[in-house]
Design a protein around this nucleic acid. Structure first.
Lengths: 159, 159
DNA sequence: TCGAGATAGTTCGGTAACATACTGTTATTG
DNA sequence: CAATAACAGTATGTTACCGAACTATCTCGA
């Protein structure tokens, strides 16, 4: 095949890999009643200690908009994996806490995820993986500079 | 920052970079009434010559399911950027053709895209970019092996 | 202290992606 | 040649993501 010019090759490859990866992960996670995005919320929540995070904090952690995060929490709550608790200090805010069920599921998923990851990374050396991480991090940084982060909003550059 | 263990770092970075990239590109393309996914359809269509492609062919080119592609073509057609024409040989099939308007838009977008791409790739060397491409290609290959390609179906070479 | 602006969440509307299930066609094969 | 399998597209329903507009609350400054 060889690609003649391929101007935006990298961009579309990222798109493809991401989409394909989501499909695979979601397929294998489906029997556990959770999706990759929801799982990622749970993972981040696990670093939130006793008090969890407010939705806005969580949205910022994940770099998604508050609307998206709201939807994810809705579905997680329906499945009783997390709980929304009104914040004592701020009546606008709700803190998101992981339930016992959520913690148990998270532990199970960890194992499955390791396996999936190995398959996806087959034939890719550790060195390549760290190159990949470094390059993607730069891109992510650039993208954030370009205002890609949706409306959960940013430091609003004072001045 | 430094991440302690980061087990699935690469996977989620791909997810983030892809999502952020989509947001940026869509933001900047919005004034032209097109999205990145639609643009990608147009780009592939431009290599289809006089006869265009059937929807299934296009879906396979793009590695997306036929339903997704159907939706994209719907929106493209509403904006008169493409046209659906019944296939002369196969009454099930419809061929997708780019309109004059579509071709004109595509030419304009090319320029914009180059600029966006440069911003996203800022600080990333040519060598890094080709490493990135090579690694992502491997991942994409692995993912396809894992049956990630949605239902527009593959050679499914039985036994 | 009170009113303007910022902030947390939700509601609403839209695109993109998926799976499953269905309608016609075409192709195969018994 | 007729039954059946394979295929092209569409319909339907779900998740995930976005922006814009709205409500309730909080905070600050005149």
């Amino acid at each position: 095949m060889a690609n003649k010019k391929a101007p935006f090759r990298a961009g579309f490859l990222i798109h493809d890999a991401s989409r394909l990866r989501r499909t695979v992960v979601d397929q294998r996670l489906r029997s556990h009643g959770i999706t990759r995005s929801q799982w990622w919320v749970l993972t981040n929540l696990s670093r939130g200690g006793q008090e969890g995070f407010s939705q806005i904090e969580l949205a910022r952690l994940l770099d998604v908009g508050k609307v998206t995060l709201g939807g994810l929490v809705d579905r997680l709550e329906e499945n009783e994996l997390v709980e929304r608790v009104p914040d004592a200090q701020d009546r606008r805010a709700k803190r998101v806490l992981m339930s016992r069920k959520g913690k148990a599921l998270l532990a199970k998923l960890e194992v499955i995820a390791v396996g999936i990851n190995q398959e996806i990374m087959k034939g890719i050396s550790a060195e390549e993986e760290s190159q990949l991480i470094s390059i993607l991090s730069k891109m992510k940084h650039n993208l954030k500079e370009m205002d890609a982060v949706p409306s959960s909003n940013s430091p609003r550059s004072k001045s």
